[in-house]
């Protein structure tokens, strides 16, 4: 994969989707700010806000975004084809080429109690995708037993780098890790929210390895069963499990001899134990390892790694800095090594 600077990515993959009034001030931003940019937030009648590593700022003082500018941006983002983005609108986000995600809010139109679509769009949040190659290096040695990868659950509050860690785990396990004597695994990914592989019209925008099959947009429980039946995976990976149906599907996969990598929202092992559905995961020891991420030493800090059966810590806390292999030199965020998950 080619590696471009964040400024280049911004210019080529984000700016074309914005109106002129936003394009010009964005182009004029200092390079270091462009490199630290995480989100661009557009709200009707409010100034455009930029979220970066150290906080947020107004893009252009005194200038607010008009309704017609918002409508134009929505047109550009959907390529003038809202009818083709109905499922994405239902989920509240659209994926752009490059894996960038545009979160959408407005007036929700309900159909039998469920969101059918969003109209009168009033806010967009453009999250810049950044794959952190090597993010999984510090945890990988703890996830291997007898030269074999073991089922792992990654737990953290939002924004601590769960998905980034999951994505890099998938990539490395799919490629194979000679230093840990791990061969490349066949991995099936259920990417319900298009966050892991960031598929844009079926094409993966993130590198998830050569032996990875991605089922994009499917519900987790259904997707896991489909992959089990059709793709004979050795590992199944999915993001943010939490419903009873998810747990049943995960169990089914484990019984079939498939190893799992999953993530869940939570604030430590004690928090997991208090959650009705996730408690079951922990108490029944479905996962051999539970990795807890946090923010104590910056985004992506590994707070703990537990042996899933005995719930004993197998790890001493350290921040994820950067990967150790050559690939890590391509990381675009040298400060923390991780971005939002």
């Amino acid at each position: 994969m080619s590696h471009r600077s964040q400024a280049q990515i911004l210019e080529e993959e984000i700016i074309p989707y914005l109106t002129h009034s936003v394009q010009e001030p964005l182009r004029c931003l200092p390079l270091d700010l462009k490199d630290r940019l995480l989100e661009i937030r557009l709200r009707v009648g409010r100034p455009v806000m930029l979220v970066h590593n150290d906080g947020d700022m107004v893009l252009s003082e005194g200038n607010t975004l008009s309704k017609s500018e918002m409508e134009q941006t929505v047109q550009f983002v959907t390529r003038s084809s809202i009818y083709a983005c109905e499922e994405e609108l239902r989920q509240g986000f659209i994926t752009l080429p490059g894996g960038h995600r545009v979160g959408i809010v407005g007036k929700a139109v309900l159909d039998e109690g469920r969101i059918r679509t969003i109209k009168h769009i009033s806010g967009l949040n453009i999250r810049l995708a950044r794959q952190v190659v090597g993010a999984a290096n510090p945890v990988l040695p703890y996830l291997v037993e007898s030269n074999s990868f073991v089922s792992t659950l990654i737990v953290s509050p939002p924004g601590c780098g769960k998905t980034t860690l999951l994505r890099d785990l998938i990539r490395q396990l799919s490629t194979g890790i000679p230093r840990l004597k791990l061969r490349g695994y066949k991995i099936g990914v259920v990417d319900e929210r298009s966050e892991i592989a960031a598929c844009f019209r079926g094409i993966q925008q993130n590198d998830v390895g050569p032996r990875t099959d991605v089922l994009d947009g499917a519900r987790k429980a259904e997707g896991i069963m489909l992959l089990l039946r059709s793709m004979s995976p050795e590992i199944i990976a999915t993001d943010e499990v939490g419903s009873p149906a998810d747990i049943l599907a995960l169990e089914e996969a484990l019984v079939s001899g498939v190893r799992l990598i999953a993530t869940a929202h939570g604030d430590g092992i004690d928090d997991l134990k208090q959650r009705p559905v996730l408690r079951e995961l922990v108490e029944r020891g479905l996962f051999s390892r539970i990795v807890i991420l946090g923010m104590s030493q910056g985004a992506g800090t590994i707070e703990a790694i537990y042996n899933g059966q005995e719930l004993k810590s197998v790890f001493v806390r350290t921040p994820i800095i950067r990967g150790e292999d050559d690939e890590t030199k391509t990381c675009r965020r040298p400060n923390t090594g991780l971005r939002y998950g």
Binding site: Q75, S80, S81, I82, Y83, E86, T117
Partner: peptide, 9 residues
């Protein structure tokens, strides 16, 4: 055109 759901289109 192009800017509403498929039913409306």
């Amino acid at each position: 055109i192009g800017l509403t759901d498929s039913k409306d289109q």
